[in-house]
Amino acid sequence: MSAVAAAEVHEKHTGSVPRILVFSTNNISDPGIDLAGSQHMHYSPGVEVISLPCTSGIKPSWIAHAIDQGFDGVFIASDGDECAYLPDCAKRAARIVSEAQAQLTELGHDPQRVKMAAICSVCAEPFTRQVQQFSATLAALQAAGAK
């Protein structure tokens, strides 16, 4: 079964779509996500965004908490190399993700529930594609009975 088909099956059975919490950044990725809306691109309403100044400010425990409390996944729309604050932002973000994954594993959740991709201020289409794919992956995880 393709991932997209899995998402549809999941929706039919559970009546719900995977819930994804997105961490974006005020100056870089959040404008990109806004642009997806301005261009009327569609992704699932299960996707909700919290915007912060910088990706490097995300606490791994927030990611673990979100998933433990009921989000199916956390997507980090990172600054990548475009961060205006921290030259090593991408490296810090990678550390935050692996720390969050370690915490998730400890809590008994699949570490694949966290995903990160650099999203720039005009990355409307890449964002939409990424969260659609992530939705599908999460639905497939669900279908396979993962926690």
Partner: peptide
Amino acid sequence: CKGCGGCVP
């Protein structure tokens, strides 16, 4: 402080 939050995590 620039308010990036990089020290927080």
